[in-house]
Design a protein around this nucleic acid. Structure first.
Lengths: 310, 310
DNA sequence: GTAATAGTGTCTTTAAGACAATATAAA
DNA sequence: TTTATATTGTCTTAAAGACACTATTAC
């Protein structure tokens, strides 16, 4: 269903309640927001876009960028794209087209426990975005501060166990590049959980989809692509086997016929360049090397999508 | 973020708007509902639970069971479980425990285009449920009628292209078992899309998760399990290879040491029985046979979850 | 008996992973 | 020259799929 049948206030289904469905202001409200887990690769490491909260709760804490769904005006996808454009500061149409056109945006999952926001019941639809190296976000637009943070600097443990709302995690002046913070940052609300789910998703998705290319510019080399996999999976891959394997998957990459201008920073021949092929699914998949300790204790289903077949 | 920063009405971020976030009744409302794609196996075929709408819009059409999120009272998961229990008529605590305890419930995705419900902006969080053969739903509880419909009888084309709201698809008296309908049924709202996404998800999930066992009673045979795969994938599988493969995946099934009482309906030896093992991910996966025509045109990412690794 | 099915064995092909080797470019 | 890296080759092992075979049960 979409909207009908018993409205929120419990009780038998009477006619007046039926009609009440047409005026939702009459009963307990729910807020709908959209949050974005935006990932990019900088200096060879995976980074996530965060904003610093300027007001309670969790004042001074970092949080995922997001905002209210504009009711009646936009879809969830549109709201996510809008929030991301606002928060990255890529607001001008030209820049947004240039930098965000290659952006991949997909729904991650929806989080809606009543107590996740102390003020009211908030249902947040989380999105996952991958983009090639983006510039530092322009402040002044929205949040107090926005910055790319290395994922490895964040505390992603199960939950914000100590819900001491508003404690500014001692790393206030972490700097705009987020790389000088002292200890692991804790995120506001249940954003650590959302980010963890997003990381699980992107790690899984690299296996059976060609989305690693969304982290790279239009033309790239096989070693570039390998660097994406190594950063996201946090594992070294065998260069030779990786190279052969990528080329063996139909539709993954297409040769441009040219090579890079220079060799690698530390020597080596010039690499050939490629761009993304037309495959939407990798066949066969690029399976992650089996981790011994992590045999079966992965999350088989935490929250949201896939629909990817193979 | 969860709830803060600019409230829906556009404009610069002023203090009064900030405070307005604490009284969401002040601006355009959004309704949050939860819809469930409940799948079960009956007579060897995949069936979905539908309810017949008793009021406009789409009066007389079939729709996914669902209802409003009870703001402040329950999480999304709880709302989905509640709706499913209500709609299947398994309301009594004992029955619900007996029949729904083995139920698998996971979030599918969230649908929120402004025009998906003609009355107002409704954001629907869709869930996917698998269960062993369930009884026919008890009417009288909620919707006008609820019934299991063979998935093959439904029209799942891209969209409800003819949005002629309220036309009762000529199959009004299709019967409670939903198997005597004349033509393919069309679903209300965007429920055809949601169902299609759910089917994509379950088909993909059988590959790398042991969830096929959620369609079966506690004890089952390998041929039972094969029947689940064949019904969901709509493909015949090689009995010998399937049998060996299932047994070769660690943690998929565990032998009970006994066999069925009788052989197959049409002859054959008694099969050994098993129950689900403790693996949460299949390793190696049971890959679907490659369809020639469907090489790459699957949906690589339509809407929501996974977080399943491999 | 006849027909159908459970379960196993074997073989071929494909893909993954471990190494090794060669060529090219930076310092 | 030295060192690092791109790219290709070879070999071993694991798994998928095709096919054949035996044993068991319903009718």
């Amino acid at each position: 269903m979409a909207a009908d049948d018993q409205p929120p206030p419990t009780g038998p289904r009477a006619e007046e309640e039926w009609l009440a469905a047409y005026d939702p202001r009459a009963y307990t409200p729910v807020a709908v927001t959209v949050d974005v887990v935006a990932l990019t690769l900088r200096h060879g490491g995976l980074h996530v876009l965060l904003v610093e909260r300027g007001a309670p709760p969790y004042q001074g804490c970092w949080a995922l960028p997001g905002g209210f769904l504009r009711a009646g005006e936009e879809s969830l996808d549109e709201a996510a794209a809008r929030e991301l454009a606002e928060e990255t500061g890529l607001q001008s149409a030209s820049e947004a087209e240039t930098r965000l056109c290659r952006l991949h945006l997909e729904q991650l999952g929806t989080y809606g426990t009543p107590e996740r926001d102390p003020r009211m019941h908030v249902v947040s639809v989380a999105y996952l975005a991958f983009a090639p190296d983006l510039p530092d976000p322009q402040a002044g637009t929205d949040a107090a501060a926005a910055a790319w943070h290395p994922v490895s600097d964040l505390d992603l443990r199960p939950c914000g166990r100590s819900r001491t709302a508003g404690v500014p995690a001692d790393t206030h002046g972490g700097g705009v590049d987020g790389r000088t913070g002292p200890g692991p940052l804790t995120l506001a609300f249940d954003h650590a959980r959302i980010l963890a789910d997003g990381l699980d998703r992107v790690r899984a998705k690299l296996e059976y989809s060609p989305l690693a290319t969304a982290f790279l510019p239009y033309d790239f080399t096989i070693p570039d692509l390998r660097a994406v996999y190594e950063a996201v999976w946090d594992e070294k891959l065998h260069p030779g086997n990786f190279h052969r394997k990528v080329l063996s998957v139909p539709g993954f990459v297409e040769s441009t016929g040219t090579t890079t201008e220079r060799g690698g920073a530390r020597g080596g021949p010039r690499a050939r360049t490629y761009h993304a092929g037309d495959a939407r699914l990798l066949h066969p998949a690029l399976l992650r090397p089996a981790r011994e300790g992590t045999a079966d204790d992965d999350a088989a289903d935490s929250t949201a999508d896939d629909a990817g077949s193979r």
